[in-house]
Simulated scan of single mutants.
Amino acid sequence: MSLPKPVMRGLLGKRLRFHIPLAFAFALVAGGLIKYGVTEPRKRAYAEFYKNYDGVKEFNHMREAGVFQSVRPSGE
């Protein structure tokens, strides 16, 4: 009793017919999860932050704290 020979002809094509749609579906699911799980909440957080952000007030606060070397505090 001998073992049958393995079928090698067309093996790559047969494997690709299964794995390419699977990889494509996985990529779509992963892309959707990243878009709606990471980027959309990040966009909302940035929008909420900049809704009440005053850049001039923040600059004056940092200037008074001495963060900048080229800008003197307003008391000098």
Rank of each mutant, 00 (worst) to 15 (best):
M1V: 09
S2L: 12
S2F: 06
L3R: 10
L3D: 03
L3N: 05
P4G: 07
P4D: 10
P4S: 15
P4F: 04
K5Q: 09
P6Y: 03
P6F: 05
P6H: 11
V7M: 08
M8K: 07
M8G: 01
M8A: 07
M8H: 03
M8T: 06
M8D: 06
R9I: 06
R9K: 13
R9D: 11
G10E: 03
G10K: 01
L12W: 07
L12K: 06
G13E: 07
G13C: 01
G13L: 00
K14V: 07
K14W: 02
K14T: 06
K14N: 03
L16A: 15
L16T: 14
R17D: 04
F18V: 08
H19R: 12
P21R: 08
P21H: 14
L22C: 08
L22K: 12
A23Y: 03
A23C: 04
A23H: 06
F24M: 13
F24R: 04
F24G: 01
F24N: 11
F24L: 10
A25M: 11
A25P: 01
A25E: 07
A27W: 11
A27M: 14
L28W: 06
L28Q: 05
L28H: 08
V29N: 10
V29C: 05
V29D: 04
G31K: 02
G32N: 09
G32R: 03
G32M: 07
G32T: 03
G32E: 09
L33C: 15
L33F: 15
I34C: 10
I34K: 13
K35P: 00
K35N: 15
K35A: 13
Y36M: 03
Y36I: 01
Y36A: 02
G37Y: 00
G37N: 06
G37D: 07
G37K: 00
T39Y: 08
T39M: 11
E40H: 11
E40N: 05
E40I: 07
P41A: 07
P41E: 04
R42K: 13
K43A: 08
R44Q: 12
R44F: 01
A45D: 04
A45V: 02
Y46W: 02
A47F: 06
A47T: 00
E48Q: 14
E48W: 09
Y50R: 12
K51M: 12
Y53F: 14
Y53G: 01
Y53L: 02
D54A: 09
G55V: 01
G55H: 00
G55A: 08
V56S: 11
V56L: 08
K57M: 06
K57R: 15
E58W: 12
E58L: 12
E58H: 12
F59P: 00
N60F: 00
N60T: 00
H61L: 10
H61I: 03
H61F: 13
M62A: 03
M62S: 02
M62N: 09
R63N: 05
R63C: 05
E64Q: 08
A65S: 14
A65L: 13
A65V: 04
G66P: 01
G66K: 03
V67Q: 10
F68D: 07
Q69Y: 06
Q69K: 13
Q69H: 12
Q69I: 01
S70Q: 13
V71C: 09
V71I: 14
R72D: 15
R72M: 15
R72T: 14
P73F: 03
P73G: 13
S74L: 11
S74P: 08
E76N: 09
E76L: 10
E76W: 09
